[in-house]
Design a protein around this nucleic acid. Structure first.
Length: 707
DNA sequence: GTGCTCGGACCTTCAAGAAA
DNA sequence: TTCTTGAAGGTCCGAGCACC
C-alpha cells in the first residue's frame, strides 16, 4: 500500500504551532465520503457531493468512545460461559472452580447477558442479526431461580404459540406484499433525516441514545433489505418525526416529494415495522420508542381523543414493562433504566397534553407511580456497559430540557391544584412538596438550581428557560383557580393583578419561543402548546375592566403573540379559529362600548383588525356547520352569541354548565355588548368540576391545522 | 477509461493507569 | 498533575471489479 500523506484535516497537528489555539472541534468528512471511503475536502458541500449532485450531509461527532473493556467484565463473561458449559454438561478446565452459589452466578450471568446484549445492540446489528427475544430487556426478578425463570418463559412462550399473530387488532394486518426496504429513503436522505432528528427533535425528547443509534442507522442504511424489525420501526419513526419539522415550502426541493406523501409513506412503514416486531406483546424499549414516535407524528393531523386512546395502549405497554416503577427499573442495567425513565416521562407528558386537548379527566400524570426524574447528564455519560450511575451534573447538559420538563411535571402531579381537577382522592398519596406545594417556592428553586446555569444564547437553554416560565405561569393560574373555585371570597385586587401579570408572562414567553430565530428548529414542539389559558384570563379581565392600567399592555401582549403564532401557521381549523376569534372580539367590543360612551376616538388593535379580516376571508369557503346554519357572512357570525355558534361537542358541553372563570375577580360586573356571552359563562360555581372539560379543550387550542 | 466499493494501513483522540 | 500507553475511532489509498 502506498504511503499515506498527512491527513487533510483543518486541525491537523502538522499545521498547528504549539502556540496555536486548538480548534474547538474537528471537521469530519461528510457522511457520503465516509461511507464511500473517499477523500473529502470538508467543505459544505464538498467537492465529491457537488460533483455527483449529492446532498452533502456533514458528519457529527456523536459517537462516544467506548471505555476499555475492564478485566473484571472479561472475568464475568468467562464465568458465565463456564456456567453455560456446566449447565450443558460439557467437560472443560474451569478457571472458576466450584461455584458456591448457583443462584448468585445465575443472577450475575443474567446481568452480564443483559450487558452484552445491550452492547451488541449499541454496536449495531451486523446487517441482520437473529431477531432476539422481545424479552431481552425485561427486568429480571431480584432473586431469580431457574425454576421461576423457566416458568415465566414457558408461560409467555405458550401464550405466544397459542395466539401467534394478533397484533393486527389495532394497526390492521401486515401487508406481506409490501417490501419495507423499498419504503426507506435513499441513504443520503436517511442521514439528512437523522441529522434533522438530532438537531430538532432529539434535544427535546432524548428517548433514544443518539451515539448508540447513529451507528446502527449508518450500518442499516447500507443495506435496507436486512434491517432488524425493531431498528426498522425506530428508523421509520425517526423519518416521521423529522419530516414534521421541515417547512412545506422547502420540503419538495429537499426530498423531491411532497411532505404529505412522504409522511404517509413513512407512517405506513413505521406501522408495518411495528407489526413485524409484534409491538403489542413486545417488552422491548426500541419497539415502544418507535410506537411513541409514530404517535407523536400523528398528532398534528389526528383528533386528540383518538390519539389519546391509542396512547393509552402505549402507556399500558410501558407499565407492563415496568418502566414506571423504580422497583422494576432496579433490575435493569444503569443505561437501560435511564433510557426507560426518559421514555416514561415522555409518554406521561404527552398523555397529559393529549388529556388537556381532549378534555379527559384522567391523567397518567398522577402520584401513583415512582419513576425517578431523568438524570441531568449528557449522552456521552451513558453507555450500555456501565455498572455505576453517572455523576449527575449541576449545570446545563444535553438533557436540560427534558429534566426541566420532568421536574415541573413531577411537581404538578403531586400538587393539590392539579389533583383537585383530576382526582382529588389521590391527594392522600401525593408526596409532600416543599412549602405545601407553593408554586412560587418551586419556581424560585428551579431558577436557583436550574435556569441560572442556562445561557440564553444557546437554543436549547433558551427553549428550556421560556418553556419553563410559561409553565410556571400556567401553574399560578391553575393554583388560583383551584383556590377560588369553591370560595365565596373573590381574589383581592392585588391578587387579580398578579394573575393577569402571570397571563402576560405566559403569552410573552410563548411569543419569545415562537419568534426567536434560535428556537426556529423547535417550532414543532412550541406550536403544540397554544397559550389559551393566558388569552382567556386576559380577555376575562378585559371584559371586567376594559379600561385599567394594564389594558393597553394586554392588547399589546396579545397582538404580539397572535402575530407570532398566526403569521407562521400553515392553515386554520375554521370552527376553532372562529371560536377563538369570537372571544377576542367580544373583549374588544366591551372596550369599544366604554370608549364610545366617553366619545373618544378609538382605533382597533391589530389583532382585532386581522381577525376580522381573516374571518371575512375564510367564511365564504369554510365547509363548516356554520354554513349550514347561517348565511355564513361575517356579520351573521359575529352577531351570534359565541356560545350559540356551531362548535364541537366539547365546547358546548361545559358552556351551558358553568364557566371556568366565574367566581374569579368579582362577578358579572362587566358591561359587554353581548351579555349572553358571559351570563352563559358565569353561573355560580358549584363543586361540580365538569365545567373544566371545555376549558381543557381551550387549554389545548393551538395554531395550525389541528390547533 | 471511468467510477464505484471496501479492505485495511495509517493517523488522531482520549480513557486509564503509572510515575513524579 | 503530568506522562505514557494503547484501544477506539476516523481517514482515505488503492486493488479489484463492473460498466460503457
Amino acid at each position: 500500500m502506498a504511503e499515506r500523506g498527512p491527513p487533510n484535516l483543518p486541525d491537523s497537528r502538522a499545521g498547528l504551532s504549539p502556540d496555536s489555539p486548538r480548534p474547538r472541534s474537528r471537521v469530519l468528512a461528510c457522511v457520503n465520503c465516509q461511507q464511500r471511503k473517499i477523500k473529502c475536502d470538508r467543505k459544505s458541500p464538498c467537492a465529491n457531493c457537488l460533483k455527483h449532485r449529492f446532498q452533502c450531509v456533514p458528519a457529527t461527532q456523536t459517537r462516544t468512545r467506548k471505555r476499555r473493556f475492564p478485566e473484571r467484565e472479561l472475568l464475568g463473561r468467562l464465568r458465565r460461559y463456564e456456567e453455560l458449559l456446566r449447565q450443558n454438561k460439557i467437560k472443560f478446565d474451569p478457571l472458576h472452580k466450584d461455584e458456591s452459589s448457583v443462584e448468585d452466578d445465575i443472577a450475575e450471568s443474567r446481568s452480564d447477558t443483559e450487558t452484552q446484549e445491550d452492547q451488541d445492540e449499541s454496536n449495531g446489528p451486523s446487517p441482520y442479526r437473529h431477531a432476539r427475544s422481545d424479552n431481552d430487556h425485561e427486568p429480571k426478578p431480584k432473586q431469580p431461580t431457574i425454576i421461576n425463570g423457566f416458568r415465566e418463559a414457558t408461560v409467555k412462550f405458550s401464550w405466544d404459540q397459542m395466539y401467534a399473530s394478533d397484533d393486527h387488532i389495532i394497526l390492521g394486518s401486515p401487508k406481506s406484499s409490501v417490501d419495507l426496504a423499498t419504503l426507506h429513503p435513499e441513504p443520503v436522505h436517511i442521514f439528512k433525516l437523522w441529522q434533522i432528528y438530532l438537531e430538532k427533535i432529539n434535544p427535546l425528547l432524548k428517548i433514544i441514545h443518539a451515539p448508540t443509534l447513529q451507528g446502527r442507522i449508518i450500518e442499516a442504511a447500507g443495506n435496507t433489505a436486512k434491517i432488524e424489525p425493531r431498528l426498522e420501526a425506530l428508523m421509520f419513526g425517526v423519518y416521521c418525526m423529522s419530516i414534521q419539522t421541515v417547512k412545506t415550502e422547502t420540503f419538495q426541493s429537499m426530498f423531491g416529494l411532497s411532505k404529505d406523501d412522504l409522511l404517509a409513506r413513512y407512517q405506513f412503514g413505521c406501522q408495518q415495522a411495528l407489526l413485524n416486531c409484534q409491538y403489542l406483546r413486545s417488552d422491548n424499549r426500541d419497539c415502544l420508542t418507535a410506537l411513541c414516535f409514530f404517535l407523536y407524528s400523528l398528532q398534528p393531523n389526528t383528533n386528540p381523543r383518538s390519539l389519546s386512546s391509542i396512547l393509552g395502549i402505549a402507556l399500558q405497554l410501558a407499565q407492563r414493562m415496568g418502566i414506571h416503577s423504580e422497583s422494576f427499573l432496579a433490575n435493569c442495567s444503569v443505561f437501560e433504566a435511564e433510557m426507560r425513565r426518559r421514555l416514561w416521562w415522555s409518554l406521561t407528558v404527552f398523555d397529559a397534553r393529549l388529556g388537556e386537548l381532549s378534555g379527559i379527566k384522567t391523567s397518567s400524570l398522577n402520584p401513583t407511580w415512582d419513576c425517578k426524574i431523568p438524570m441531568n447528564v449528557n449522552d456521552s455519560d451513558l453507555w450500555a456497559e456501565m455498572k455505576e450511575p453517572p455523576v449527575v451534573q449541576a449545570g446545563a447538559t444535553e438533557s436540560t430540557f427534558i429534566v426541566m420538563r420532568a421536574q415541573i411535571a413531577d411537581f404538578v402531579r403531586s400538587s393539590s391544584f392539579h389533583l383537585e381537577f383530576f382526582n382529588p382522592a389521590l391527594k392522600k398519596i401525593a408526596k409532600k412538596l416543599p412549602n405545601g406545594g407553593d408554586v412560587a417556592t418551586f419556581e424560585k428553586m428551579m431558577e436557583d438550581e436550574f435556569f441560572k446555569f442556562c445561557d440564553e444564547e444557546n437554543p436549547l437553554h433558551f427553549m428550556t428557560i421560556w418553556t419553563g416560565r410559561a409553565h410556571f405561569s400556567k401553574c399560578y393560574l391553575l393554583e388560583a383557580y383551584a383556590k377560588y373555585i369553591d370560595s365565596s371570597t373573590p381574589p383581592s385586587q392585588a391578587e387579580s393583578d398578579a394573575l393577569v401579570a402571570q397571563a402576560f408572562r405566559m403569552l410573552d414567553s410563548d411569543t419569545k419561543i415562537i419568534t426567536s430565530p434560535r428556537t426556529a428548529g423547535f417550532f414543532w414542539a412550541a406550536r403544540a402548546y397554544f397559550p389559551f389559558p393566558a388569552y382567556f384570563h386576559i380577555i376575562h379581565d378585559l371584559k371586567k375592566r376594559p379600561i385599567s392600567y394594564h389594558s393597553n399592555q394586554a392588547w399589546e401582549v396579545m397582538n404580539a403573540n397572535y402575530e407570532a403564532r398566526f403569521t407562521c401557521s400553515e392553515g386554520y381549523d375554521y370552527p376553532l379559529f372562529a371560536i377563538f376569534s369570537n372571544v377576542i372580539l367580544q373583549a374588544w367590543e366591551a372596550l369599544e362600548e366604554v370608549i364610545r360612551r366617553s366619545g373618544e376616538p378609538l382605533a382597533p388593535p391589530k389583532i382585532v383588525v386581522t381577525i376580522k379580516q381573516r374571518l371575512l376571508e375564510m367564511t365564504p369557503n369554510a365547509p363548516t356547520p356554520s354554513n349550514e346554519q347561517s348565511d355564513g357572512s361575517l356579520d351573521t357570525l359575529l352577531d351570534q352569541p359565541p356560545m350559540t355558534m356551531p362548535m364541537p361537542m366539547e365546547f358546548g358541553m361545559g358552556l351551558g354548565n358553568e364557566g371556568f372563570f366565574s367566581g374569579i375577580g368579582g362577578q358579572s360586573d362587566f358591561s359587554g355588548p353581548d351579555p349572553r356571552l358571559f351570563t352563559s359563562m358565569q353561573p355560580p360555581l358549584t363543586s361540580d368540576l365538569n365545567h373544566l372539560n371545555w376549558m381543557s379543550m381551550f387549554w389545548g387550542m393551538r395554531d395550525g391545522r389541528g390547533w
